[in-house]
Design a binder for these strands. Structure first.
Lengths: 145, 145
DNA sequence: TATTGTTATACTCTATAACTATA
DNA sequence: TATAGTTATAGAGTATAACAATA
């Protein structure tokens, strides 16, 4: 017996299948992000750091957000600072702390990256408001952060 | 006027806000994956390669799936082979091609990684079947691959 | 004493270019 | 000629350990 219109509703994926789907989605997101960042001559990690700097923050906070050792952040920020994309500033409240902030050039790069990533996610732009609400809610449930 | 129960439905996120949510979800997925892989002494990339090897495949195919240059795959497979997690085999149909396949040890590592990632995604295990179907469908729309 | 950031070190990942074996 | 895989090289990301400055 072959199915006639309307087609059968799709079977819900098992948790394992959904995990695989999440893995492919995460890979696709970063492939897209890395390609856009490369358009500005930036690596994936450099693009991530710039995108995280919506506000000035200590090196230490950056390391926590990137889930890497603090010693790595020194080199990453060195390379971004050499290209005038970020600046280090002393924290007046605690002289051990260095605050990292975007320069004007860095802010422009972030705007280009965000626009580029969004432009490549045409499937997201086509999503109706209820679907956007559902996707946001489901992602919050799976990744409470 | 303060809201009484039931609370107002949440406002749908804008495409830009949803993009940020996707970025955090992708980061959380890889943070989880990398931590589980590290439990087996594997890097993120090594864990990804093992997970991709559901079937034997040429080095070239692996490079395409990883979206990296083929020369990188040589070193990654070298290190996995030195730990007896994968093997190279000549392709009888084309002697230029080397097929990479999981050893028994490699298959065990993949099972541990998959179980570990799934176990850490407790928000996913708690999802009811209709929510799993909706999330899978929405991810397919945003990341058609 | 504890914390922040840096340096030194070693290893992994990465792209580019040049090479070989095979098609 | 074209393709699959490797090697050599240089640069970037990574964790660990030790250090100076500050709290």
């Amino acid at each position: 017996m072959t199915s006639l219109a309307p087609p059968n509703p799709p079977a819900p994926p098992s948790p394992g299948e959904l995990m695989d789907r999440l893995a492919r989605a995460a890979a696709a997101y970063y492939r897209n992000f890395a390609a856009v960042a490369a358009g500005d001559g930036l690596t994936l990690m450099q693009g991530k750091v710039l995108s995280l700097l919506r506000r000035p923050m200590p090196m230490r906070t950056l390391a926590e957000l990137l889930a890497c050792d603090a010693s790595n952040v020194t080199g990453i920020i060195d390379r971004l600072e050499a290209r005038d994309l970020v600046r280090r500033e002393a924290d007046p409240a605690d002289r051990r702390v260095k605050l990292v902030l975007l320069t004007e050039t860095g802010q422009e790069a972030v705007r280009r990256i965000r626009a580029g990533v969004l432009a490549d996610l045409d499937g997201l732009a086509a999503l109706a408001a209820p679907d956007r609400e559902a996707l946001g809610r489901l992602l919050d449930q799976v990744f409470p952060d």
